[in-house]
Simulated assay, not measured.
Amino acid sequence: MEIYLIRHTTPNVEKGICYGQTDLDITETFATEARAIKQVLPPQIPVVFSSPLQRCSKLAAELFPAHEINFNAQLKELHCGIWELQKWDDIPAPELKTWMADFVNVQVPGGESYTQLYTRTVDCFNQIITQHQQAAIVCHAGVVRSILSYITNTPLIDSFNVFKLYYGCVVKITRQQTGLTYQLLHNIPPAQPEQHRPTNL
């Protein structure tokens, strides 16, 4: 069994903006990033799944132009609720501190907790691996991190430190006698680091 997890390319959004399920477009670097991803994928992957958000759907179409893409809302990024498209530094401190103190279990106001993201992601992943021996999943960092936490039994609270996942990363999951294992095939740090938290916390 081979499952290829592919994170979307650089989204068209200002640094320091909170986004999750906002349907962001791609940037002018898309073609270059997509070519680099394609180089590490096998020539024939029979089944492709994707988040329906356009930063994923456009990448899936670019990488697999001959495929019918299976879109699944369970593969969307964390729902950031009322924080979507707010600057991290403008989010009220009491709300933010409550969430950051226990982001695994506390829901973003009007959105999800990390545990809720993990639950729906793992449910979708298990459906895929029970039905397909080889497939690609084009999705988001939160989804990839959830799957890797699941197959390695990594506590969610540790997952950001354990799994450093950059735009366009590709992770290959295979089934061994000991269980599911993973290998990073492509994971290049950006020139400017991503910002998914306030500058003062």
Rank of each mutant, 00 (worst) to 15 (best):
I6A: 02
S146Y: 00
L180M: 12
C124Q: 08
Q176I: 10
A191N: 14
P155D: 07
Q74W: 11
K38C: 08
E84D: 06
Q116M: 13
T9E: 01
W83I: 00
K38N: 12
C139Q: 06
L78F: 09
L148D: 03
T152V: 11
T174P: 08
F64G: 03
K87I: 07
Q177S: 14
I128L: 06
A141G: 15
A101V: 11
I129P: 01
D102K: 07
I151D: 08
C124T: 04
H67G: 04
E68W: 10
P190C: 03
G81W: 00
R145E: 07
C80E: 10
N161P: 11
V40T: 04
H140I: 03
V144C: 12
S51V: 01
Q21H: 10
T119K: 14
L184T: 13
G81H: 05
Q177W: 12
A66N: 15
A141W: 09
T115V: 14
L148Y: 06
I129L: 08
V48Q: 01
N12F: 10
Y166W: 09
A60S: 05
V40S: 03
I157D: 14
I91M: 03
A135N: 04
I45R: 05
L117R: 04
Y19I: 02
M100T: 15
W83P: 00
N153K: 13
V13R: 00
D102V: 08
F30S: 02
H196A: 12
I69H: 04
I91T: 03
D90A: 12
F103Y: 15
Q192H: 13
L75A: 02
H196F: 15
G179P: 03
D90E: 13
G20Y: 00
W88Q: 02
W99V: 10
V162H: 12
E95P: 09
L85N: 07
Q21I: 11
A36H: 12
P43C: 08
C169W: 02
Y166K: 03
Q192W: 10
P46M: 03
H8P: 00
T174V: 11
Y4F: 11
P94I: 06
C124L: 08
R35E: 15
T115Y: 12
K97I: 15
S149H: 07
N153Y: 13
N72M: 10
I137D: 02
Q133C: 13
I45M: 07
Y19M: 00
A135W: 00
N200V: 12
I91D: 02
N126Y: 08
E112Q: 05
A93E: 15
L148Q: 06
L5Y: 05
Q107W: 08
